[in-house]
């Protein structure tokens, strides 16, 4: 991990909505192929930060650098290098599995042949060859989630942003899902994930804990537990939030 260079650099990031400060002077880095967990209660400012990093919203103040590009001036280049999965899974319910993959591959400008080959490969790995022509709305939540993640990294982005990707899914499916995240990380994709499940924080290489728009702690899960003298991340979080 030490030798890797920074792929996300955030310096003095401030985001205000009127007089409300959603992100108060954040500074942090994420390293290449790291799994970076962004934790916090609802309303702590996680989603705001994620939106700024993925180019959905502009910062009020501060420098944000993604994959070597500035989010203000090189927005288009940033967009080509990132993938995004929202908490709603963001698939088209009335399109089939294959059509969804085709569509999302298409908007990233991938060639038809490449999409076709990679889709077959992907469906095989997910063991979903039988359901490729089924509509998304007929599938269980866990499957949708896996497809949504695969779609988010289909165009081989350098970074993938996951906004509370495991909401509403059972523990076993969640474990499966984290397997996929590890796989992606092993191929060199940086994973930036927000969550409020503290057990998931244990799976991250490093976590950042936010409270009321500020960063309260940032480190590896094991060092955080040591620092706060806690058994698990849940305790760490409670100690910080109180």
């Amino acid at each position: 991990m030490v030798n890797h260079k920074n792929i996300i650099e955030v310096k003095n990031l401030v985001k205000k909505y009127g007089s409300f400060v959603a992100n108060d002077n954040l500074t942090f880095e994420v390293k290449e192929s790291e799994i970076f967990g962004f934790l916090g209660a609802n309303g702590a400012g996680k989603t705001t930060t994620l939106k700024i990093l993925s180019g959905l919203s502009y910062p009020t103040f501060g420098d944000v650098n993604i994959a070597g590009f500035d989010v203000y001036r090189e927005r288009e280049k940033v967009k080509r290098n990132i993938g995004y999965m929202s908490q709603k899974f963001s698939l088209y319910e009335d399109l089939t599995v294959k059509e969804n993959i085709r569509f999302y591959g298409g908007i990233y400008g991938l060639s038809g042949r490449y999409i076709k080959e990679k889709t077959e490969d992907l469906l095989k790995r997910l063991k979903m060859e039988d359901i490729k022509d089924k509509l998304i709305n007929s599938l269980p939540l866990g499957w949708k989630q896996k497809i949504a993640f695969s779609v988010a990294i289909f165009h081989n982005p350098k970074i993938v942003f996951l906004d509370e990707p495991t909401g509403g899914v059972d523990p076993i499916t969640r474990r499966d899902f984290w397997e996929m995240i590890y796989e992606a990380s092993n191929t060199g994709i940086t994973v930036f994930v927000t969550t409020h499940y503290m057990d998931e924080a244990e799976y991250c290489d490093r976590v950042c804990i936010m409270d009321q728009g500020r960063i309260e702690a940032i480190n590896t899960p094991s060092l955080l537990k040591k620092q706060y003298n806690a058994k698990n991340m849940d305790e760490v979080f409670i100690k910080i939030a109180r």
Partner: peptide, 12 residues
């Protein structure tokens, strides 16, 4: 459906 966000994040 949240698909708008994904479209806005994409190069479109």
């Amino acid at each position: 459906m949240g698909t708008m966000e994904v479209l806005l994040v994409s190069p479109l």
